[in-house]
Design a protein around this nucleic acid. Structure first.
Lengths: 255, 255
DNA sequence: TAGATTGTTAATCGATTAACAATC
DNA sequence: TAGATTGTTAATCGATTAACAATC
C-alpha cells in the first residue's frame, strides 16, 4: 500500500485473490535477484525467506497461477520470472504520465524502478507555465493544457498524480475523461472515480501515523511492565536524564 | 497503501485490529477538513463518504475506540479529532530522521504533511560527503558518520530510509542499533529487523505493477466480449488505427 | 412522541497457515 | 528406493457488511 486502499471491491480478478496479486511483485523482485546471480532453481522455503513471507502462503499464491514447480526440486527461476511477469502484464509496455512535477513528481521521474518493469514515462505534466519545457530526468515538462492530447496520442492508460491535494480531483477527472483507467495517487485526497477505474493511493503521512500508533503502544507496553524487546533511543535518552550518565536501561519510566 | 507489508503478525494492538488502525488516519484527515470548515457534528454516513469507506465499517472501527457518538445526532467533530489523534499517538511530538537525501529524500523533507501531524524532521542524513552541510528544505544535511549521535541526542524512534536498495539494510541495522524501533522503508529491499521493530514499506514500482495487472485484466475482459465500462485511451487509439478516423468505440480489438 | 442515527450482533467472506498426500 | 519438496486440503483467523435494537 503503499497503503490506504481506494480500490474496487476485492473481487477475485481472473480467480487470483487481491492479496496474492499484491505479493506477486515481491516474488518477482526476489526472483529477479536470483536470476541475476544465475541461480537456476529455488525452493518455496528459500524464495519465501527472500520475499519475507511464509512458505505456505507462497505456495498457495503460486497455485493460483498454475503448477509451475517440480516436487522434490523446486521452481525454475527463469520460468517463474516469465510466468509472473506475464501474469502481471509486464511483458507489454505501459506508457504512464506523471502530473505535478514538484519534488515528488521529479523524484518519480528519476526513479529507475519504472523502466526496468515495463513502465515508460511518456510525459511529465505540470500546471505551472514557468515549468513548461524545463528538463526533468532528461525529459521536457509539458503544460497541463496538452494533457488530453498527450494521453490520446501515447495511448496512456496509467496516470500518476503528484499534484497538491487541491488539484488532484480535477486532474483525476481530466485523466479519466481522456481515457486513463488506472491512477496512482500521491496527493492527500480521496479521489472519486467512475466504476471501472482503479485508484491506488500512496500516503506518506498515513504510513508514519500507523508507525506512530505502534511506537506509542510499545511505550505503553513497557510502562505496563511488559518489558520492551528493544530499548528505543527515546527511552534511553529519558533514562540517562533520569538516572545519570550510567543509567542506560531503566526498569520503569515516568510518563 | 503503502503496500507490501513487512509487519509484525497481525496481533490486535490494545485490542484495535490492524485494519482499523490503518483507517484511523483516513478518518482523521476527513475530520480535520470538516473542522476547518467549522462543521460541528457529522454522521457516520457523511464521514464514511468523505473517507471513502462503508459506514458500517466506520462505526465498527469507532466502536473499538469507545462510544464517542450520540445516537440520533452523530459525532462531535472536534472531540473525535482529539480522540483519534490521541489513539494514534499524534498528541506527542515524533522526531524522525530521513536517511538518503536524493530526489525522494528531498521530496519527503519538503513534504508539509509531516509537520502538521506531530512529526518533526530532526535530521537529514546522507552518505555522500559532498552533500554534507547542503541545505535541503531549509535544513543542513548531516553525514551518515553522525547517525548514531543524532538518533540518541534527539531521541529519534522513527527512521525513514530513502537510500538506494543496496545501502538500505546496512542503514537499517545502524538505525536499529542506535535505538530506532519504527522504520518507513522506501528502498526496494526487504529489510530484516529484530523482533519488536516495525517496518512499513512503500514501493512505487509495486503499486504500478498492481495497477498493470488490473489494467491488463480489463483489456482481457473486453476481448472476451464483456464490454469495458470505460474505454481507455490505449484502446481508442488502437481503434482509430484499425477503423479509420471515425472509429472511436470498437466492438472487438486485435490482440 | 417521532425521527434519526449510533453501537453491536451475527452472518459472510476472504486470507492465512499447518499439515500431509502426491510425486519428482 | 529414499529424500525432498510441491500443491492442496481443511482448520482457523480476521475483516467486512447488513440489519436492527438501543437510545438520543
Amino acid at each position: 500500500m503503499a497503503t490506504g486502499r481506494n480500490h474496487r471491491p476485492a473481487t477475485r480478478s481472473r480467480g487470483i485473490p487481491e492479496a496474492t496479486v499484491a505479493r506477486l511483485p515481491l516474488y518477482l523482485r526476489a526472483l529477479t535477484a536470483l536470476s541475476e546471480r544465475s541461480v537456476p532453481t529455488v525452493s518455496s522455503e528459500e524464495l519465501a525467506a527472500a520475499a519475507g513471507v511464509n512458505s505456505a502462503k507462497l505456495r498457495k499464491d503460486f497455485s493460483y497461477l498454475g503448477s509451475y514447480g517440480t516436487r522434490g526440486v523446486g521452481y525454475d527461476v527463469e520460468y517463474l520470472v516469465y510466468q509472473i511477469s506475464r501474469e502481471l502484464g509486464l511483458t507489454q509496455d505501459w506508457p504512464v504520465v506523471i502530473v505535478g512535477i514538484g519534488n515528488l513528481g521529479a523524484a518519480l521521474a528519476n526513479y529507475g524502478g519504472f523502466a526496468s518493469r515495463g513502465f515508460r514515462v511518456a510525459a511529465l505534466i505540470d500546471a505551472d507555465p514557468s515549468m513548461t519545457g524545463k528538463q526533468v530526468a532528461g525529459m521536457g515538462v509539458s503544460h497541463v493544457d496538452d494533457l488530453e492530447e498527450i494521453i490520446q496520442v501515447n495511448g496512456v492508460s496509467i496516470g500518476v498524480i503528484t499534484t497538491p491535494g487541491g488539484a488532484a480531483q480535477q486532474v483525476c477527472d481530466r485523466l479519466v475523461a481522456a481515457g486513463v483507467t488506472s491512477i496512482l495517487n500521491f496527493a492527500p485526497t480521496v479521489l472519486t472515480v467512475p466504476e471501472g477505474v482503479d485508484v491506488r493511493k500512496v500516503d506518506l503521512s498515513i504510513e508514519l501515523q500507523i508507525l506512530a500508533f505502534h511506537e506509542q503502544r510499545k511505550a505503553a507496553d513497557e510502562l505496563a511492565g511488559n518489558g520492551a524487546r528493544v530499548p528505543t533511543a527515546a527511552r534511553r535518552r529519558a533514562a540517562r536524564a533520569d538516572e545519570g550518565p550510567e543509567g542506560d536501561i531503566p526498569a520503569v519510566m515516568p510518563a
